[in-house]
């Protein structure tokens, strides 16, 4: 099977989705923070805000998936390894936090934070490639 070697196109298509979606995400977060009082707002409005804030993130996840499909073979391999490492680190942390809670060592932690942890781990796993030597 012929493998795509479209590094630039894949990057361009990723950025075209990533940056607008991040702008939408920030706008929604700031908008809901300053315009809506979630203690007084009806449940349906809070739910709508939560879904609206999540939608751009889903689109970014789709962009990551599409980029790994479309990019060149070596980049795909590195991305998939980084995603694997991020997934393993995040699930490891989930187990650790879960057991710490079960044994009453720590209190509740917002599940939300495991999302940023995943992307932080993904970034960390990709860090070594930033120091590749150019000849």
């Amino acid at each position: 099977m012929a493998q795509p070697r479209r590094f630039r196109t894949a990057n361009r298509r990723y950025r075209f989705l990533f940056w607008p979606m991040m702008a939408v995400y920030v706008a929604i977060i700031l908008g809901t923070k300053f315009l809506i009082d979630d203690d007084k707002a009806p449940d349906w409005l809070n739910a709508a805000c939560a879904i609206a804030a999540t939608l751009p993130l889903f689109i970014v996840l789709y962009a990551i998936r599409r980029q790994t499909d479309e990019t060149d073979e070596y980049t795909r391999m590195r991305y998939l390894k980084a995603l694997r490492d991020a997934g393993l680190i995040t699930s490891g942390l989930l187990f650790l936090v879960g057991f710490l809670q079960i044994f009453d060592v720590i209190g509740d932690i917002e599940v939300f934070w495991f999302g940023p942890v995943f992307f932080f781990a993904f970034g960390l796993a990709r860090l070594p490639e930033c120091f590749g030597r150019t000849v």
Partner: peptide, 21 residues
């Protein structure tokens, strides 16, 4: 139309390219 890291990896023998590449 591949990444610079791809070229580096092939040159240093860290990665063997597919047949199309």
């Amino acid at each position: 139309d591949v990444s610079r890291q791809s070229v580096n990896a092939i040159e240093t023998g860290k990665y063997d390219p597919s047949l199309p590449l």
